[in-house]
Amino acid sequence: MNDSLVTILGSSYFEPISALLEKLEKHESNISNQVQSGYYEKGFAASICILSVVCLESYVMRVRYINSANQDHIDRTPVVSYLKSLYPDFPFENELLELHILRDLLAHNHLWEISYSFNEDDEMEISEVEKRSSGDKKYRQRVDTENHVTKTLGLNVNPIKVGASDVKLVLQTMWKILLFLESKNRNQCYVSHLRAVYKGTLRQFGEIIGMPETCT
């Protein structure tokens, strides 16, 4: 007799994310400025943000599978479009687009040329920016190009400025979306009970990312 399974990573990402959060907190500092985050901060922050969006995408693939999505929906339909078609009351359309913008600009390392100067407090300030990577449609729709942040979540879109504050926004937005999917059908996405090791203690993941009210 043969058994079967589907290749969804899903919750397997929570332990690595938790481990990276610990690393980020050890290196997080006050040396971030208008131009960039600290050397270690931006590296760990970018890693967590990418991994968090990949984790979310993994769960959405399970949603597609459980809901018997056709091949076109599996291969070609973007995550935001699919969730909105499946659940017209999905309330995080703009937020999810912005998570994907951040994922794209980090994964493809958008290229900027930044001219900067030092103010009277010896802090770096941006003088001029030439953005060599143009971004796609969602980037043009959801980014405040004057302030270099996304319009709803306020995520930094300068790749070397991404830091701890962006991590918090990304993780909490990811978690809200996962809990929404859980509320629709636990069989497709059941996460509220999941735990990970954080600072030597097994804790609920919602608590680790600062959303204890979502823990059960």
Rank of each mutant, 00 (worst) to 15 (best):
K137N: 03
F92C: 06
D75N: 14
E120N: 12
V80D: 07
V63A: 10
C55H: 12
I48K: 03
P91K: 08
K131D: 01
E57I: 00
H100V: 00
E93S: 11
L51C: 03
S117R: 12
L106C: 02
C55E: 10
S127T: 13
L86I: 05
N109E: 08
K138P: 00
E128R: 15
E125F: 07
D121L: 12
K137T: 05
C55K: 10
E128H: 14
L105I: 14
D136E: 12
Y82K: 10
P91I: 07
V129F: 01
V80K: 12
R62D: 09
R103H: 12
S47R: 11
Y82Q: 06
V54M: 13
V80T: 14
C55N: 12
R62H: 10
S115A: 12
F92S: 05
S134Q: 11
V53N: 07
Q141W: 03
V53E: 08
A107I: 10
Q71K: 14
V79D: 06
D104A: 10
V54A: 15
L83I: 09
N70E: 11
H73M: 14
I66G: 00
N119Q: 09
Q141F: 02
C55I: 00
N67Q: 13
D89R: 10
L83T: 06
S68D: 11
L83S: 04
L51Q: 13
E113M: 12
L99R: 04
I74C: 04
D75R: 15
A69Q: 04
R103A: 01
S52L: 06
A69H: 07
S134V: 09
L96M: 15
V53C: 06
A107Y: 01
L83V: 08
K138H: 05
S47V: 01
I101D: 04
K137R: 11
L97F: 10
E128N: 14
N70S: 09
Y82P: 03
S47Y: 02
S133D: 07
R76S: 09
Y87L: 07
D75Q: 14
V79K: 10
R132H: 10
L106T: 07
Y82L: 09
F90P: 09
K84A: 08
N70D: 15
E128F: 11
E125T: 11
L105D: 00
Y59M: 05
R132S: 03
G135S: 05
Q71H: 07
E57A: 09
R132P: 00
D75W: 06
L102H: 00
S68L: 13
W112H: 13
S134A: 10
N70M: 08
N119E: 06
S81N: 13
L106V: 07
H108M: 08
Y59E: 11
I66Y: 09
D121Q: 14
M61L: 12
A107P: 03
Y139W: 14
S134E: 11
S115R: 13
E93Q: 14
Y116P: 03
I101P: 02
L51W: 00
I48F: 04
M124Y: 08
P88Y: 03
L86E: 08
L56C: 05
L105E: 00
S133Y: 04
G135T: 09
E125I: 15
I74T: 02
S115I: 08
